[in-house]
Design a protein around this nucleic acid. Sequence first.
DNA 1: GGCATCACG
DNA 2: ACGTACGTGATGCCC
Length: 877
Amino acid sequence: MENKNKLLLIDGSSVAFRAFFALYQQIDRFIAPSGLHTNAIYGFHLMLTNLMERIQPTHVLIAFDAGKTTFRTAMFEDYKGGRSKTPDEFREQIPFIKEMIDKLGLAHYQLVDYEADDIIGTLDKMAEAPDVSFDVTIVTGDKDMIQLVDGNTTVEISKKGVAEFEAWTPEYLKDKMGLTPTQFIDLKALMGDASDNYPGVTKVGEKTALNLLHEWGSLEQLYDHVDELKKSKMKEHLIADRKMAFLSQKLATINVSSPIEIGLEDTIYRGPKVEELLAFYDEMGFAQFKQKLGGQLEKSGDDHPVAVKKVAYQVVVSADEIKVKPDDFFYLEILGGNYHKEEVIGFAWGNENEHFVSKNLSLLTAFDFPENTYDFKKNRVLLNRLGIKLPLAKFDAMLAKYLISTTEDNRISTISKLYADASLKSDEEIYGKGAKLAVPDDAELFGTLAQKIHTLAVSKEKMIAALEENEQLSLLTAMELPLSEVLAKMEITGIAVNKATLETIGRENETRLSALTEEIYALAGEEFNINSPKQLGVILFEKLNLPHGKKTKTGYSTAVDVLENLAVTSDVVAKILEYRQVSKVQSTYVKGLIPQIASDGKIHTRYVQDLTQTGRLSSVEPNLQNIPVRLNEGRKIRKAFIPSEHATLLSSDYSQVELRVLAHVAKDPNLIAAFKADADIHTSTAMRVFNIASANEVSANDRRQAKAVNFGISYGETEYGLAKRLGIPNKEAAEIISTYFERYPEVAHYIENTKREAKDKGYVSTMFNRRRKLLDINSRNFNIRNAAERQAINAPIQGSAGDILKIAMINLDRALETQHLNAKLLLQVHDEIILDVPNDELDQVKALVRETMEQAVELTVPLKVDENIGATWYEAK
DNA sequence: GGCATCACG
DNA sequence: ACGTACGTGATGCCC
């Protein structure tokens, strides 16, 4: 099924005028910081976004009148004469409307001697040519263009405000006036047009003109038989004004063969130029549009339908046809995301001009893989299953895009919108989603693959330029790319899991859950679904009348912190908490993990390398970065994770890495001193904040509070948050925080400077130039802005810490290789790595890991590593 | 598919 | 006066 192209043609001059008057009442509310009136600009934008949303065009052109004189004034001097002067407040906004149109990624055009109508009529005709055949919507403020309606063309005329339009189709025109589109011209010829200032026939208005046309069919027919009319004033006028009638007919006729210098290909909608648009909104003072654009991008990456476009390709069947250039791109396609399980459905390679596609996997065994790709890690893991080992790519477009901006996703369709011609359909459109996921026919599959190669090739230079501009090139080549190889190996290796252990835990849990269920039902006096927060809320807060704390959007909150307060006095709540704990372990970690054990007895997670806002990894299908550890109840799950034969699990984690990074980036002397002295950091903070002279006078409670402060600081925590966490009055929390900043003044400066930097530049950076954009940092909304400020404070800390472990992993992988050790990296959990170490390598590897992690980068404070070993992950902690 | 909940660093 | 920590993923419920 092929989508049809949709062309939206807008009479910019008339729509802008409409927009100006729609918001004229409130003109004084629409003033840019520069003093410029913006009501027409704002209204025009509103109209445009409404139209774009509703019509979803693939092509758009906004036509403007070029000037006062046109070929029509040459025919009739008074054409459009007698109009009152356009207000200055309106005229001055026109250039900005055009600028805005540019930045929205839309085309505009004007042509000397012609009106917007003529440009639109000409393009409309082009769009109806049989080989293109678009659906066309014309939007305007006056009725002249109704003559253009036909089976493919609808004319929408602005009725009221910025969103109400009357849609004219041939049927509607027939219904409403009993006319055909061509007759509409004759209508104007007879009745004239007051605003365009041509008279038509004296004393003939709409009513008379319609009657005449219904009777005679056309102006020509009417005049051919004008003598047959019975004697009347009207007949005299018709005869007297014959010349004017035919002149008016000419004036009313839109020129559909105007000498325009643009074509349909110039009107393809490729989406907004986001950065420029954001700056424009600032200039105009359009806060809501800015907000909305940011939000849209975060959500969906501005999904608009795109022009149907084909890229030529060559299907390669046999090995002797393969031609690969070293700087080609290579791309592998699978359905869905799980490359541990899914089969390759096709692959492609090539460059901007040549696109080769194939489904013949055997070709890959002797393939000369080119330097550039998209998602190297996926390729590496997939091809490993086919026994093919490919060399590390030099450029990975997915990772490059991620480094440039984390605001949108990094799909090729998004890359196409940002760096190419936006002509790529989303994978969802091609392959479907969920249950409807399917391989399309060869033509569509190959066409898509070819377009992907084309998009990647076209985008590469622009992405490299952006990386250079941001000084992020080495982040790609020396960090993310080598890491992708390390992660690929870890994913391929997988971690051995003892299914029987999980099953035993599962049986125990089932027994406990049934017992708990019975007890809860008895205490509640009825049966209900304990897993339903809604039903649970009714039981606890309506039936048992327990005091309810906070509410959620949908009802009472039954979250742990609420239930914990109630559990002190309520047996049933205590049981429910216990049930929840067991149930979580059972559903997510027993029932969830067992089916994830592959036929090799291992679990192979996938690390998502292009997702987080801070540069951390994430882990999916299954997530092995959130295996329980805090409560023994869940921690037992770790007993199922085991080393290979004659090996031991080694877990090495950075001690307080984020606080050390904070000490380093903030250059705080007191924090640095504490780490240099290898002091217990929470005790040290307690001493400074609570004025305690010696470490052994610090109580457990002092340390607990200091620990909360230490963590809270790097998240930008407020006094309210700290008070709640520690269960102390707000005032006391405020006191603690202000004392903290007195004792650690450079931390206070760091926080202020980071916020300042974020507000000035719109982004913050890690020690290694990883960026996080903060679109909301200058929001006028207190909450939104504060949230962005906290993100600004945290991102460089969390991100730098993440970068440090990435560096350590790369170095460790190399060291293991050069020292010919058989130990293998298995897992990464943000500040910790887990290795499978042959027993005879244990001492050496333990030292090597420690050394590599501690020396990954040199900070003003030492990095410290703790390690644990064990015969299961449970013990190695 | 959104929401609530809870697992991790 | 606002309304409360940063970053994730999986599950079950319910519309």
